[in-house]
Design a protein around this nucleic acid. Structure first.
Lengths: 194, 194, 194, 194
DNA sequence: TATGAATGAGACTTCATTCAT
DNA sequence: AATGAATGAAGTCTCATTCAT
């Protein structure tokens, strides 16, 4: 099939995110999705084989987008903390700008739609962060703990902070970014117990 | 005559958790739920008005249970770090022992089933942690940042760590608890930047 | 099975009538019926094989009761109009006192519960009226038209009048009985067209 | 693209009537209805929100249709009896041609589906008959009794007669129409008691 | 016998998907 | 390709009936 109008796909993805952000995957209905995306139900099936396929493609799409966003540009000669902070910030900004994406990726994993293949692929989404952490450990700047432990620490705290900011239990993310980085850096940088 | 059997309710909740843990809220079907809970479909409707009511009651139930689990007993005369660690550990243990509960609470919020009242109630679930953090800040032992920031940091990191441990990206939780605490304490305790 | 408590049957019938009078046969549920009759659901099945049986017995019961009510006592030596009027009045009074019974008998006919036998039996409910009409025709007092035509005329008008009185489109039955009889007698008595 | 097909609505109504005429409202099942109307179950829900809505719309529809049928055309210069008879005959013909409609309207009133609004609306269905009766009374041709009493008399007798004709207790309606009119006219026209 | 919780067939309804236009 | 009405399998829920107490 030929897709004359490629933007229909992105419109679909965006509409789906919006719904999932509000009602969760359990609340995503093809009819409402089409309406929100400004097209007819049947049109969805021109671009996607079925709901499963739609969500699969969507998953791949957003995993890639997330990765692109986290990589960003780094000044090679900058001091390590600044480079690390940059990656961390990229991740933070992504989570903040695209909260629905995060909800989707999260809920997709535990859903009747996820295939094992998809989930496996997720591992390297955070590759940008993995690399910078390894670099810091090699340089003796970061604490020597399993990379994934450090990683989960960073990602978890960021996600939760953004979520709380969103639902009003914390101020706007931009207003606490500095403090959040303090916490993060204190935790993962190599420094003697006082 | 058969008596109204309160354990049917808990059996239902447990079965629901099991399914949600695997398939997400989107994968929870009343018929399968009944089967898993060892009763007839109709029986569910003896104890719950409808699916919505079931999930509402379930939410209230698990919010309460989570709180009970986090409080725990504290030795009053213990040094602060130990008391704090205890609460943190209670939380960690809960998240680890009951991953499905966490998934449920998470997914419930963004679902067609959640009522605004339910969500409001969630605020005080983490009261036990709030209190210990405030105590530490007052004593000058903990860093002076918004409580909820510290809190989101702690909860987020714990949740993510457990999740990664569960899906194989990290070793068993018990094997990294010590290291995780190091990270956490380093981040939130008052100590000069080195 | 032995029915220790025979009044349970009548209590059931009465409760059923009450419900049918309000919600129709389509609104009769065994559970609500039991509650209204002041007993447990299961008890109904001690006295009746199933819902069908209940309605069947109920039909027979009320057909008989109606007949009993219409017969009444007649003074043999009274003038014909008075005797006729007496029967008519008995019927009217029955329809008025027991409107739910009428609704039930009506709806029962067109329902998934009615058996052909039941319906056949209904023919002779109005036997008392048939007899008095025949007597009047033989005596030349009543107009010579098919008995059932006269009969349907009388029954239909009475039923409708009572129904209208009940739902407020007509005054109380007792206040218009005299006028109604005027109409009836004028229609069926032998008198030249003017 | 297929167009929304208004005749599907009428096909649904007709099928519903057919079923209700046989089995009563209590016997109307959505699946059988769809089958009888020659469409899929789901299609019903394209045109009607739910069973309740279907029956509500249906009620409004048939109340209107009945009224249309009774009005008919009247020769202005005809003698009163003929005009009156015409209206009466229109009503009779409607009741005879559409017995299921009558059953439906009747059963709908006492059903779990009826709304108070619907029922209120019914009052003016018989407006055509009301008008002609008032005219006759003003002209001194008809007996001076409450209009609704006369009306209930006429409607009740017609309905019952047709019902009996239908179930075999009376000959075909066309064969007794003349006699029925005799009875009716005798009852309501002004004439001295003999 | 009386109870009302438990059952599951079958009713109502939704919704992913197809199809005529 | 695009549309949205049509479809019917699958879901939610009801309710006549059974059954343990």
């Amino acid at each position: 099939m030929r897709h004359r109008d490629d933007q229909k796909i992105s419109r679909t993805f965006e509409a789906a995110l919006q719904i999932i952000g509000q009602k969760g995957l359990a609340g995503l209905k093809m009819q409402q999705l089409a309406k929100q995306a400004g097209m007819a139900t049947g049109t969805l099936y021109v671009y996607f084989k079925d709901k499963n396929d739609l969500l699969n493609q969507m998953y791949v799409h957003y995993v890639k987008q997330m990765q692109r966003n986290i990589w960003g540009e780094l000044r090679i000669d900058a001091p390590f903390e600044e480079k690390f902070r940059q990656r961390w910030y990229n991740y933070l900004r992504y989570v903040q700008q695209f909260p629905a994406e995060i909800v989707f990726l999260e809920q997709y994993h535990r859903s009747p739609f996820a295939s094992q293949d998809d989930i496996a692929q997720q591992g390297n989404v955070l590759q940008p962060l993995v690399e910078i952490i390894l670099e810091g450990q090699k340089a003796g700047t970061l604490i020597h703990l399993p990379v994934n432990l450090v990683l989960s620490f960073i990602c978890g705290s960021v996600q939760e902070m953004v979520a709380w900011s969103e639902n009003g239990h914390l101020p706007a993310v931009t207003d606490i970014t500095h403090q959040a980085w303090e916490l993060t850096w204190k935790s993962v940088s190599k420094q003697p117990r006082n």
